[in-house]
Amino acid sequence: MASSLTQLKNYKIRPKKKLGQNFLVDDKVLEEIIALYDLKKDEVVVEIGAGLGALTTRLAPRVRKVLAIEIDKALVRLLNDEIVKDKNVEVITQDVLLFDFPGVAKLHGSKLKVLGNIPYSISAPLLFKLLEYKNSLSMAILMFQKEVADRIVANPGTKDYGVLSVFSQISAAVSKELLIPRYSFYPQPKVDSAVVRFVFSESFIMGIKDERIFKSVVRASFAQRRKTLKNTLKNTLNLGMLFSDVLNTVKACGIDPGRRGETLSLEEFRDLSNSLAELQSY
């Protein structure tokens, strides 16, 4: 940690709160994260938020290519000048929300592995982006604030279960792997973090016929959490069909319209969206 702080001082860099910069400086945790990856020499890894290069330098000897994304130009200069020595590391100055994951996977001829400590402010939009590009990824190991990680892995019927849970679990095998205490970071944040592993597989996608309808149904079901499915779908679902037909489809799937969206399983969301997709196609 001392050398990292010295580098920050020498380059007159202060962690930027607006970018959610909390650098992981615990060597033990860094090695535990790398161990989760099952890295192979022919793989390409995208690192989100290279920061001080603590993970970058550990990844480089283990893989074919590391694409280290960092939006902070001061940190990019530090990485290029002092930290990154391996020729297979490319530091990219870019907002990760604009990164072309499918294009990069195609360029390198293989699916990508993704690693990153995700700032709270972009947790949901970045996760939705990665899930959208799931066919270009093989695995992601992501650090989130613990409350976000809890939402991702939550089970039906719990307070944390919601859109993040359904979209994540319908797209990948998801597991919470490590709890990282706040003192493992510099500067120390106010909350603990957790590492979530996503293993993507085309065979894992659970037979969804129309992703647009599936996403619409899920979002509508959680739009008004305290209301029943009957009421929240009536108020928020817009698929261009009669609500009476939607309600009959809910019942035909064996789902009580008096239930709340948070009680539906992944399979029930899939069956309902597939039935609505079939109805819309007539």
Rank of each mutant, 00 (worst) to 15 (best):
L126S: 02
G20L: 09
V191F: 11
R212E: 14
L247E: 15
F99C: 04
I213D: 00
L179H: 14
A149V: 00
I213E: 02
L233N: 01
V63S: 01
G207I: 05
I141N: 08
R270F: 09
D271G: 02
F214M: 06
P119Q: 13
L229T: 02
N238T: 10
S175F: 02
G258T: 06
T236P: 00
E147A: 11
N248F: 09
G20D: 09
S216K: 15
K65P: 03
D210G: 06
L242N: 15
V195I: 15
E132I: 04
G261A: 05
S168P: 07
L97E: 14
F243A: 04
R259Y: 07
L276P: 08
V114C: 06
V25F: 08
I34Q: 03
F204N: 07
V44F: 09
L130D: 08
S123P: 11
Q188C: 12
E211W: 15
K87W: 07
M206S: 14
P102Y: 05
Y37F: 14
M241W: 06
D42W: 04
R225F: 10
L233V: 07
A172S: 15
P189T: 14
K215E: 12
N231L: 00
T236C: 10
K111L: 14
L19D: 04
F128R: 10
V45H: 04
G51S: 08
L279Y: 09
L67M: 07
S203P: 02
E82V: 09
E177Y: 06
E268F: 10
D95G: 07
K9Q: 13
A277D: 06
S175R: 15
L30V: 07
V199H: 05
E267H: 11
T56Y: 12
V96M: 07
K190S: 12
T236G: 02
K9A: 14
K28T: 15
H108R: 01
L55D: 04
P125W: 08
L39G: 02
Q169V: 05
V166P: 00
T249F: 08
E177L: 12
F101I: 15
K41L: 14
K41Y: 10
Y186Q: 08
F144G: 10
K159L: 10
V195W: 00
V196C: 11
L276E: 09
L98V: 08
A2I: 14
V63F: 00
V63Q: 01
S216M: 12
Q7R: 15
L30D: 02
I69V: 15
L98E: 14
S138Q: 14
P61W: 11
K159T: 12
L78C: 11
K113N: 01
L127D: 03
I208K: 08
K17L: 07
K234Y: 09
N231T: 01
Y183P: 01
L115Y: 01
L75A: 08
D150W: 06
K234M: 04
L79F: 08
N274P: 10
V195M: 14
L131H: 12
V199E: 11
P156L: 13
T249D: 05
F243E: 09
I34C: 04
F167W: 02
V163C: 09
L55R: 06
D210F: 05
G20E: 06
D150G: 09
P181D: 11
A2M: 11
L8E: 04
V174Y: 12
L279F: 09
R219M: 13
K176Y: 00
E32K: 14
A74T: 13
A68L: 12
K159I: 13
V166E: 01
T236Y: 11
I180L: 05
